[in-house]
């Protein structure tokens, strides 16, 4: 949807985006100094707690590292507030068109009495003010203003291609019916729809505000998605009806017990012989121990992601097999091994 920010919102968002990307250059320099100071990845411990104890003090003694951390803290803690203020400057111009896009072929079925899990309720993910539902247009604020305008530039504009690569890894052709769990504002769902344009697409999330942004995107592009509000571990769906159940970047936001519950539900709603495909962040075992420290420090310790370490340290293929899948593998895509994908097949019996 076409829209224009007012001067204050536009300039503030541009400033946050540039501060993040320009301060990121400190990372390579502080890495070099840390390695030169004797932090040999081959000699570092693998255990995340021991890694933190050994590596963090070395980096935190470096002034550039402290500035890098301050800039990342500031942008994380400001981006939600800045984006909400930018939206409110243009609310009178944009609210009508946004509401109009909620009419169309794509529908949202709201849960009557949502029993939100503890890991989701009231938590401000990634230190972001407003969390998932903290504004009446949080889907637009998060999906458009934060993700597309502030986060995507930090990933060299590749964030949507990376998401789509998970759908492309699904070992299926022309699935009749697909479910995307934890669809948020529909950014991965877009990739799924592009890879499987002829499939019937269902998608769910706990956040009503994010589902509404997914609905707006789909209606704007004349897509018919069946959106509904639910937790992945309690799907209000009949057994054995999907040819593919997929999810992106949700499992690291919840405890492994919830991942297990999700996979049990995916198994239940999949047809015999069908696949679950789950994409998420890189597993710790795929990093050298210095880069493992960085992933753990910037996300688990300092990034507002309380379940990151638990997810990245657990073999998701074993969780899938334990949940009842007949086959499962978990591996990184491409040379960078990012993202990691779980490919799990339900037995035919």
């Amino acid at each position: 949807m076409e829209y224009s920010l007012h001067q204050r919102g536009r300039a503030s968002i541009d400033f946050l985006s540039d501060l993040r990307s320009l301060s990121d250059r400190f990372e390579a320099r502080t890495d070099q100094r840390a390695i030169a100071a004797g932090l040999d990845p081959a000699k570092l411990p693998a255990d995340p707690e021991k890694l933190q104890a050994q590596v963090a003090p070395v980096l935190e003694a470096d002034p550039e590292f402290r500035v890098l951390r301050m800039c990342r803290d500031w942008t994380l803690e400001q981006h939600g507030q800045v984006a909400m203020e930018a939206f409110d400057e243009i609310r009178t111009d944009i609210e009508g068109p946004l509401k109009a896009l909620q009419a169309g072929p794509t529908t949202v079925a709201y849960a009557d009495d949502l029993d939100a899990p503890d890991y989701w309720e009231g938590y401000e993910f990634h230190k972001s003010a407003g969390g998932w539902d903290g504004h009446d247009y949080m889907g637009f604020v998060h999906g458009e203003l934060i993700h597309r305008r502030m986060v995507n530039p930090s990933f060299a504009g590749m964030i949507y291609a990376v998401r789509k690569s998970v759908a492309e890894a699904a070992p299926v052709s022309n699935p009749e019916k697909i479910l995307d769990v934890g669809c948020c504002s529909g950014q991965y769902t877009q990739g799924v729809a592009e890879v499987f344009p002829n499939s019937e697409l269902w998608a769910c999330d706990l956040s009503a505000r994010q589902l509404e942004q997914a609905q707006r995107y789909a209606n704007e592009h004349d897509l018919k998605w069946n959106l509904f509000q639910a937790a992945g571990e309690a799907l209000p769906l009949d057994d054995e009806q999907f040819d593919l159940v997929t999810s992106y970047a949700m499992f690291h936001e919840m405890p492994i017990s919830a991942s297990h519950g999700n996979l049990q539900e995916y198994l239940r709603v999949l047809k015999p012989g069908a696949y679950a495909v789950v994409g998420d962040v890189k597993a710790y075992h795929a990093y050298n121990n210095y880069d493992r420290w960085k992933a753990d420090y910037w996300n688990q310790v300092h990034g507002g992601d309380p379940f990151w370490r638990e997810y990245a340290s657990t073999n998701l293929a074993e969780i899938a097999l334990d949940a009842g899948f007949a086959e499962a593998e978990w591996y990184g895509l491409g040379e960078r091994q990012y993202p990691f994908v779980l490919i799990a097949r339900k037995g035919k019996g």
Binding site: R66, R69, M70, D73, W74, E77, H302
Partner: peptide, 8 residues
């Protein structure tokens, strides 16, 4: 923001 990003 953490209170110990910057030092004396």
């Amino acid at each position: 923001m953490s209170k110990d990003n910057l030092r004396a």
